[in-house]
Design a protein around this nucleic acid. Sequence first.
DNA 1: CTGCACTATGAATCGCTAA
DNA 2: GTTAGCGATTCATAGTGCA
Lengths: 286, 286
Amino acid sequence: MSSVVLEEPDIRTGDCIDVLKKVPDGSVNLIVTSPPYGAQRKDTYGGIPPDQYVDWFLPRAVEFKRTLAADGSFILNIKEHADSGQRHLYVHKLVIALVEQQGWRLVDEFIWHKKNSSPGKWPNRFRDAWEHVFHFTKNPGFKFRQDQVKIQAAASTLNRAKHLGVRDFEMTAPETGSGLKRCVANCVGRELVYPSNVLHLSAETGNQGHSAAYPVALPEFFVKLMSAPGDLVMDPFAGSGTTGVVCRMHGRRFLGIDIHKENCDLCRKRWEQTPPSENDEEAAGQ
Amino acid sequence: MSSVVLEEPDIRTGDCIDVLKKVPDGSVNLIVTSPPYGAQRKDTYGGIPPDQYVDWFLPRAVEFKRTLAADGSFILNIKEHADSGQRHLYVHKLVIALVEQQGWRLVDEFIWHKKNSSPGKWPNRFRDAWEHVFHFTKNPGFKFRQDQVKIQAAASTLNRAKHLGVRDFEMTAPETGSGLKRCVANCVGRELVYPSNVLHLSAETGNQGHSAAYPVALPEFFVKLMSAPGDLVMDPFAGSGTTGVVCRMHGRRFLGIDIHKENCDLCRKRWEQTPPSENDEEAAGQ
DNA sequence: CTGCACTATGAATCGCTAA
DNA sequence: GTTAGCGATTCATAGTGCA
């Protein structure tokens, strides 16, 4: 029950390339972000044209790397869009540039499987139901607390838990909107297994006017996995502040940056509306 | 019930870059293949080093493009491996080169979610449970018969949804027949639904001694979707001949190429052991 | 037909040791 | 230092058979 004393969230308005200039080297423990995608969202972000995307992103990533702690991670959620029947290549090019030009280590690529992706039928493609989530680090060693993100096993595996009644499992069912189970204390000892690098999460609905749907469970997974209570988590494209919500839920400090004042206001509002973490859940996870 | 008269499979031993020289322009309707991955399989393929992978692949892709019909598709299943804590980049580089140097159109990227991925627990990553499946074409127009791959909600699926709790909606359930899986929740109340670009398949068991597990359901999906009965399907890295098996099952002609005579023998054997298509299933699919 | 028990197996990765 | 080779280790799931 060692409560972490939470400061107010640090929400700053501006382009992260400028704002981060004032952030000290190595002071950020984890970066989790979903940057503006290609040119689709012109109204919201100004629309970075696909052929300028890498050049736009790279100087910002320099600041990300500088401000990130030696054992920190950079989680990048992104998806190339289709245009004239083809997928753009800027995501592939960005990954290569981050590794080869900036020295990031590409540890792994997670797949976010969006279970309830928007319906629709096109003559030349199916519904797009996934997005990239790249895991970059600065060094071979980084925080990776696997026991914090165990999930419930599939039914076939649960045969081993036959002693337990079905109702027990229903009681530990995931919260609405979260495909990843909250590993609270009463789940421990049941059938919890390690996840793989494919994350099955529903895209969130009702995202408070922000244009990019970003379910709480996505940053939650990485915040729990790659940071500890009291750590500083940064989202340079904070949007509606979902990463910040997760930070408040789990006792992390939050630095959110967004170029639009309206988004920054929304970040603060959602932080206020989120109940802070009451106990040190990390101990229970062990 | 219009049976397609099937020729014997055309299995040729050699490097596809040489063998394809004798194949006429535009004579192949669909290419489905899983090339040798990075340097892992030295015994089987000679092990292409990651830093030479793109240069090794590109001249072969030239032949793929030349022999492919104008409305054909090229399906490429591949996965970069991890090495010293990092994922290699040759897959990203290959995709860019295929598009920008050779003029392929990258229509979409499917994700093959391997439900039974290889075991292991490491300090810095989770189990790898997915592979890329890239869809390339030569032109904007291509065969895309979506109704052939609609997914049925199995009766057992609906029953289970009734009997079990919320947790069951997190899982996927088997489709009757092809082995494609679907999220239960999306199936409730519907008989046939279109799939998304995330394919949930288990890796195959008992793959007859070949090193690469390539489940029948994977090429089957693309053969049904992107070719018609009587079409010629080509696999330039045929391996154990799983693509050929699918061709016999669905009344397609097959051109299989492999550098190892043992694999070619295996391809023929598996073709022989596969019951040919008896009826024109295409009509039923509508 | 359901439910349960048991078993087989999957394109792997890390880290150490030797050259 | 640097690389290459090899061994030890890892676990969720599907599938099958039987009560």
